[in-house]
Simulated scan of single mutants.
Amino acid sequence: MSLPADAAETSGLTVGRAAARLGVTVRTLHHWDETGLASPSLRTHGGYRLYTATDIARLQRAVVYRELGLPLDTIRELLQAQAVDPTVALRSQRHQVQERIARLNDMVEGLDRMIRAHEQGILLTVEQQAAIFGPDWEPEGVLRARERWGDTPQWAEYAERAATRGPDDWKAIAQANAALESDLAVAMQDGIVPGSAEANRLAERHREAFDAYFHLTHEMQVCLGRMYREDAEFTAYYDRVHPGLAAWLSRVIDANAQAHGIDPGAAAWR
């Protein structure tokens, strides 16, 4: 049916005004018209679409169903009220929405853990940390590390891994590190020479141990060894395991790096 242009205001809404009232785009209404989902009942003599009050009510239902995530074919069926009980599809969609909410809640929880891991480094209580890492463990050390390296890719990688770890995971890491430190001390006592096959195996164990935190290249490992002998806090830590261990481990790391084509004197954090 078509109407003269001056009857448009009283008999229906143009596509632009209908789209504005419904909060959708004109393009959406054109698409719904072309696919037969919801078409205007009237047109002016000039061919302009006009939506009646009945059309707008149908469109409002279509918009609601679309917001619920229903596909257009299902929406078309629901709009044919005489052929379909809408509650069946709506209950099905409600169940899907609940599942989506549950997945989103899991994502939020994961993001919260990631945020805390970036901020705290280890998602364990102080008591859990003491039980796992020993009475000499200082939780503040992790916070100092964040202040020092919190803006690096390595800290981000460390935090991503820490976000997924619980007490058992950290216990396994602590035990592996303790075993490595003990083997390093024994090797030094036994006179293992940097650059020997045994020393190189220990250097590789040390580098691989860092995979629990972040990927460590041979060049980066040289930089760590340099820090062990130049940073008083790190030197004290390794020298408590065995006197002189920090300097010896640095030499072991340098020799192993040379065997992999790295010049220790030019090594950079990369």
Rank of each mutant, 00 (worst) to 15 (best):
L68Y: 10
N177R: 14
I75D: 00
E208Q: 14
A176Y: 01
I115V: 12
G261F: 09
A266I: 04
R49K: 11
H206W: 15
W149C: 07
F234P: 01
T164Y: 04
A267L: 05
G265C: 08
A178G: 10
V252L: 10
Y228R: 01
S196E: 05
K171I: 10
I262M: 04
F133C: 03
Y213I: 03
G46T: 13
T235N: 13
H118G: 10
Q221M: 14
S182W: 14
L216D: 02
Q80M: 09
Q80S: 13
A179E: 14
Y238H: 15
D85W: 05
G225P: 00
L29M: 08
R17Q: 08
M220A: 15
A8Q: 11
A5K: 13
W170D: 05
Q221T: 02
V252A: 03
T54D: 15
H95L: 12
R27E: 13
Q189C: 10
I192G: 02
L72S: 11
C223K: 11
R113L: 12
L224V: 13
R201V: 12
S11K: 08
G69L: 09
H242N: 11
Q98F: 06
T235E: 12
D151A: 09
E230Y: 05
L249M: 12
Q60E: 15
E219V: 08
H206D: 11
R229W: 04
Y228D: 01
R58N: 04
E119H: 12
I262F: 05
E9S: 13
D231Y: 12
S41M: 02
I192V: 15
Y65H: 08
G141S: 07
W137C: 09
L29G: 00
G150W: 00
P264K: 02
D73M: 09
A178T: 14
T10G: 07
D112M: 11
L216F: 13
E160F: 11
W149Q: 06
G261V: 12
G166N: 05
H30A: 03
V252Q: 00
S250C: 08
V222E: 00
G150K: 02
R94D: 14
L37N: 04
R148G: 05
Y65I: 01
R76M: 12
P40G: 05
A174V: 06
A268M: 11
I56V: 15
E138L: 14
L13C: 02
T54R: 13
A83E: 09
W155H: 02
A268E: 13
E233M: 11
W32G: 00
A176V: 02
P139C: 09
L42C: 06
L245N: 03
E208I: 15
R100W: 10
A203S: 07
V26P: 01
L70R: 00
T25R: 04
R91K: 07
V63P: 00
A185G: 09
A178V: 06
P243W: 03
I173Q: 08
I253L: 09
I75S: 00
T14K: 07
